[in-house]
């Protein structure tokens, strides 16, 4: 498997507080990795470490399969926290600074990029007079300017109106599909994230609690009869051989999820008890996307 980003137990400690705690993240080439967590969960700190803006206290990292991070970071475009812009310059001047810093000889590249992000008509307007959405677009333009292979975007749709959000979503999908750019994106707008993400990582209090592909999401949110039992093997055996139910899974030891057979809940409970399986909990489960993420995050998404 080819990974663009692979971290191993990355940790960041500020004083006594572990902001990022042993995060091992795996971002596959070509993926759009949705990074989800509450405010203060450690998303931005983690992204800053990947981008080389902060040094990890512990842990290792590979970018594009290499540990030569400084060299590989040339291939990364970032928009972390606020866009890094000079407020007293115009959008064109800001991009001109980037063009000169990276020795890009084609002057046309600035105009092309302004056109690409829809800022070509800002003319002499200073960035300090831009709306939040325009600043975000400029930030995206800066992150894309050096033709990156990997984009790290921290809340890129913050402050955008619905039309702007749609445009950014379409832009990211275009970059991913047409140019094959891998994207690591954090957002609080879960519904929006779910429209583009191919993989998810959930961070809670600095710990990466889950990493899974988007294809698993439907399954994870699926309505089911959830049973917490003391003997998983025996319970599975009863379901298969006595009740002839095959549509179930065991996500972890002690937990059984039975799909579809909701009318047989009573029968399943009875058979388990008669055959010596103790049931600690038995309930109908199933959530929408937001509800599922909230459960993983341990409360409100952005409280």
């Amino acid at each position: 498997m080819e990974y663009v980003l692979k971290t191993e137990n990355i940790t960041k400690v500020y004083g006594q507080h572990k902001v990022v705690n042993r995060v091992s993240m795996h971002v596959k080439k070509g993926a759009i990795y949705g990074f989800i967590g509450k405010n203060g969960a450690g998303k931005t700190t983690f992204m800053r470490m990947v981008a080389g803006l902060a040094a990890p206290t512990e842990g290792t990292m590979e970018l594009f399969g290499s540990t030569e991070l400084e060299k590989q970071r040339k291939r990364i475009g970032t928009l972390i926290e606020n866009p890094g812009v000079y407020a007293n310059m115009t959008a064109r001047e800001n991009l001109e600074v980037i063009r000169k810093n990276f020795g890009i000889t084609e002057k046309q590249a600035v105009d092309d990029m302004l056109e690409f992000v829809g800022l070509s008509d800002t003319n002499k307007k200073k960035v300090k007079n831009f709306s939040m959405g325009m600043k975000q677009r400029l930030g995206i333009a800066i992150s894309l300017f050096c033709n990156p292979d990997f984009l790290i975007l921290d809340e890129p749709i913050n402050g955008l109106d619905p039309e702007g959000i749609k445009e950014i979503r379409e832009l990211l999908l275009k970059l991913n599909r047409e140019k094959g750019i891998t994207i690591l994106i954090s957002s609080h707008i879960l519904g929006e994230l779910s429209k583009i993400a191919t993989h998810y990582g959930i961070i809670r209090e600095g710990v990466l609690v889950e990493e899974f592909p988007a294809s698993d999401l439907e399954d994870r949110c699926r309505r089911c009869h959830k049973l917490i039992v003391d003997n998983t093997e025996l319970a599975a055996n009863i379901l298969e051989n006595k009740l002839h139910i095959n549509n179930f899974d065991v996500p972890k030891q002690g937990v059984i999820r039975v799909f579809d057979h909701f009318e047989t809940m009573e029968q399943i409970n009875r058979e388990f008890i008669l055959n010596g399986v103790n049931i600690k909990e038995s309930y109908l489960s199933g959530q929408d996307l937001e509800g599922y993420f909230m459960e993983l995050l341990g409360g409100g998404v952005n409280d």
């Binding site: 400084e70 990364i76 970032t78 926290e81 606020n82 890094g84 812009v85 600074v97």
Partner: peptide, 16 residues
């Protein structure tokens, strides 16, 4: 200070 005011310094830091 201009480099730090809006975080423009991060556009070159860690970019090779």
């Amino acid at each position: 200070f201009g480099e730090y005011a809006n975080g423009a310094v991060k556009n070159v830091t860690g970019k090779g």
